[in-house]
């Protein structure tokens, strides 16, 4: 697979990194390297614009409230057009936790409204109750992946997210809270734009999803060469068990 190249853009790695988001990047990177797929990771910080032609996969993690505010303002001002154009040409955009909220329309904290880039038709409101914290497992329906394939992880969010105007969830909650603790939905997907609250981090515990992202970013028909995933599969099963479902 030597002619292939995956160009990853990591948004705000200095600010939006609170739940070990670095682990997600490390998994994408290594799984490409092990297959001799050329891979590059480029940090895109505050103030820098996004060239939509330069990236096949763009990642946005979570941050503390103050950092998220600063990054949200920067995202609207400097990066929205680049992100929209990247999504339009089929690049994968993955937002986790705070990153998911910022891919949506807005995040309301009481009187304050933090605008998102509206690539996902969701709204998030800081709930009255306590944070939604714990192990979580969801079943997904993704093109090219087995029906009902499970993602397992850990969630920790104060915001309650609602799907608007027929937006599609990433999955259905098997155990845990999901978007808002009541709808039974988790995350959101619109084409190649994906948001989720699952960290833990997400990709080490779900190597099949890492590969799905890599092959989707490189081109739909691509079949990745298999790796020795025995440890990855055991880790996935352990994360499923932690959430309270049988490991699969």
């Amino acid at each position: 697979m030597a002619d292939l190249k995956l160009r990853i853009g990591a948004l705000y790695p200095d600010q939006m990194n609170i739940y070990a988001d670095r682990g997600n990047i490390a998994v994408l990177q290594r799984r490409c390297e092990w297959r001799s797929v050329d891979v590059s990771v480029t940090a895109i910080g505050l103030g820098e614009p996004i060239d939509p032609e330069q990236f096949d996969l763009i990642y946005l993690g979570g941050g503390q409230d103050d950092d998220q505010r600063r990054c949200a303002a920067d995202l609207i001002e400097r990066k929205r057009d680049g992100l929209v154009a990247a999504a339009a040409r089929g690049a994968i955009l993955l937002g986790v936790c705070g990153g998911y909220q910022l891919l949506g329309r807005w995040y309301e904290l009481g009187e304050e409204r933090i605008e998102g880039v509206s690539l996902l038709d969701v709204e998030t409101i800081r709930g009255e109750g306590s944070r939604l914290i714990g192990n979580v497992a969801i079943e997904t329906r993704l093109p090219g992946a087995p029906e009902g394939a499970v993602l397992a992880g850990f969630e920790n969010h104060g915001g309650r997210t609602r799907l608007l105007d027929g937006a599609q969830p990433l999955g259905r909650v098997l155990k845990g809270q999901g978007n808002d603790g009541s709808s039974g939905y988790e995350g959101c997907r619109a084409g190649t734009v994906i948001g989720t609250y699952l960290h833990g981090p997400l990709l080490p515990a779900n190597s099949w999803f890492a590969d799905w992202l890599i092959s989707s970013a490189l081109g739909d028909d691509l079949e990745l060469s298999p790796l020795d995933d025995s440890l990855e599969l055991e880790a996935h099963a352990a994360a499923c068990r932690a959430a309270g479902i049988a490991g699969s």
Binding site: N17, Y19, A20, R22, N135, G200, P201
Partner: peptide, 15 residues
């Protein structure tokens, strides 16, 4: 371990 006193969330090992 991932008991309450350890933190249930083990994602920190990736940091």
């Amino acid at each position: 371990n991932d008991r309450i006193a350890d933190g249930r969330d083990i994602s920190w090992i990736w940091d």
